[in-house]
Design a protein around this nucleic acid. Structure first.
Lengths: 151, 151
DNA sequence: TATTGTTATACTCTATAACTATA
DNA sequence: TATAGTTATAGAGTATAACAATA
């Protein structure tokens, strides 16, 4: 009746081989570790992802960020507002279509991104330490297939 | 500059091989599909997991449910309250320790669980249709290692 | 007419602390 | 003193609808 036994009973009897549940539980741990690792930069995993896209070569607009991160456009407004207030990103006008705003990391944004990224990578390494590099790559490939399914 | 191209640019340039991000995105899709599939039973993925544990042989108490699902004990109170109001689970007293309450599915709970489970399985099958059975098993095994890491 | 970004709003989920009853 | 469950509350995340500017 110890703790370990309870967890084992539950793992064996229900949900333990349900992909959705495993995905959810792995994700909860991942978010917790990510937010903890990002605390020093005052980012969270959500704002970090936006900053990472803004700092990439892709020059995304808000709608593209929303679709890629599976967020509602209105959520992206809030996230970008916050990053912009902190001077980490800018809303650049798109010459071709004046409705759209391209989100770009500022110099300061790039500096913070470097710190944030290494913190995240370090946290992941710790969290995934019981997977080999090959296993991690397999996992990434399989998740990519799920994550970018038609829907 | 079409949609597909934007997504591809983003996938290639940032986050696209970040395990945490892939996990998060796959999970968002999984939750959305799960909630949609469960709509007819008026469950959500969260209450479904609790009901599934209550309907298992494991006879978990609330604290065990909280730890297994990585929820706060107070969240489990709310979830169980709701399921109990609907007559799907009971709080059974533990003879050995009168503080703890064992959560058990009622007959009606088991009936609903059967429907819910098949809806969830069907939704997963659709969502994971581009993985082979072997790949799905590999994915489950790797996720299990992440999901039940020490932390 | 349709789309991008925005505002407003409500709902769900998550996190914390304090309380009770038992141990 | 510590633990299981509970209550209260605030904060983060999610979903929807309506609107202005532009296409």
């Amino acid at each position: 009746m110890t703790d370990a036994t309870a967890a084992e009973r539950l793992r064996d009897s229900a949900l333990g081989d349900d992909l959705s549940f495993l995905l959810a539980r792995a994700n909860v741990l991942s978010i917790a570790a990510g937010n903890a690792a990002l605390a020093a930069t005052r980012l969270r995993v959500r704002s970090y992802s936006v900053l990472a896209l803004a700092g990439s070569e892709a020059r995304p607009n808000q709608r593209e960020i929303a679709e890629f991160l599976r967020l509602d456009p209105s959520q992206v407004v809030t996230l970008v507002d916050d990053l912009q207030k902190r001077g980490l990103v800018d809303r650049a006008p798109d010459i071709a279509d004046r409705r759209t705003k391209v989100i770009l990391a500022t110099e300061e944004g790039h500096r913070v991104l470097v710190l944030a990224r290494s913190a995240v990578i370090e946290a992941e390494r710790r969290l995934h330490s019981n997977l080999s590099d090959a296993e991690r790559e397999t996992l990434a490939e399989l998740l990519r297939r799920l994550a970018f399914t038609g829907a």
